[in-house]
Amino acid sequence: MARFPAYASGWDKTWHYAFRIICGLVFAFLMFPILVILPLSFNAGNLFTFTPEMLRFDPDGYSLRHYRNLFQSPDWQIAMYNSFRIAPVATLVSVSIGTLAAIGLSQRHMPFKQAIMAILISPMIVPLIISAAGMFFFYSRIGLQGTYVGIVLAHAVLGVPFVIITVTATLTGFDHSLTRASASLGAGPVKTFFKIQMPLILPGVISGALFAFITSFDEVVIVLFVGSADLKTLPWEMFSGLREQLSPTILAVATVLVALSVMLLTCVELLRRRSQRMRGLEP
């Protein structure tokens, strides 16, 4: 039960509960679409709505056929295969050079910090269609259009802002006396980096990596322009499925992707807490 201050009137109490109901509705709005596709993906029929059998919880109303279809159809298989070989590599590229840059950016002596930051964050801000069109022409010119390398590079650029943001966030409040202490005790810069800085920024690096991964894994506009049919990814296949023939297999894919996002989100949450603990920002 909520405790109300002494001056609270009857109106206040009513409003308090009404307010909670409003917030509850907003959360319902946020979660409803995601939750509703989970049961529908086990639909035994070819429909996108709850059949009477499903509402009666009749086992005949449910089946795994859409999941079977997902794991048997060559189109979805190729899409899955491509998604899982593009996203990790793109992530690796953006994390490796992104982390270096974030370390540079968070040093006090960094020149032109604001301008450089603005450029590095821009892939997150520029409308995707513009990025996609620009890369389409440019990659065609240098022969990377429709190639694996082309998509990986394009996705790596999109992941960069996330790595920069998360890693610089872990570095703010970083106590530089630690590196000085390490140096004065005789450790070289490389050793200092791995023994002192790395453990502290690691949570930021990993959560940046997860952001970069999901960005690439979820990206479709660039793939549509820079990719080709043999490089189609899960989002590409979903996009054409949604535009062409809406098949319930899409709901099965969607459910799998939601499970994946829950996993990734959990990782990020745990990392964030660990990072805050390590830097002593929160108990």
Binding site: S140, R141, G143, Q145, S228
Partner: peptide, 10 residues
């Protein structure tokens, strides 16, 4: 795509 390829000579 063909036009972009040809512009690029690729």
């Amino acid at each position: 795509k063909l036009r972009a390829m040809s512009e690029a000579g690729n």
